[in-house]
Amino acid sequence: MKTRHKRLAIIVSGVIGLTVAGLFVLNAFRSNLVFFYSPTEVLEGKVAIAAGKTIRIGGLVEQGSVKRSPDGLKVDFVVTDLNKKLPVHYEGILPDLFREGQGVVAQGRLQNGNTFTASEVLAKHDEKYMPPEAAKALKGGTFMPGNETKKP
């Protein structure tokens, strides 16, 4: 074996070894690396959440669920992952992209194990980009952009 072949073998096996090790580490940290939990994970107790701990939840804002108080910035809405629903209460300014049927990430505390009081609400958009005319044309068909059943 020539020296340069040996060096090549060392480099290739080193990169492969490090990648595999890195993936194992990331897999071990998997649950700590998520940015938010889904309503199902929270409501079915799939993740351990200490009482009063600040967490983030994410999903779609349910159609027709947004209720704004007439006197101020208070807003109530329901976040769904199309399996479980979690009511959210929030007081503050919502991002421009916040709308029914769109993705949302809320940071705050779980109250009584079934409602969520948010201190910050972020809008999460999906990967679809199209002109409004194309979106309108698609809505006439079976496909509704931003509203189909998929992982939020």
Partner: peptide
């Protein structure tokens, strides 16, 4: 794809 992120998935 691996984690829930605020960033959108690949377009």
């Amino acid at each position: 794809e691996w984690w829930n992120t605020l960033h959108q998935p690949a377009s």
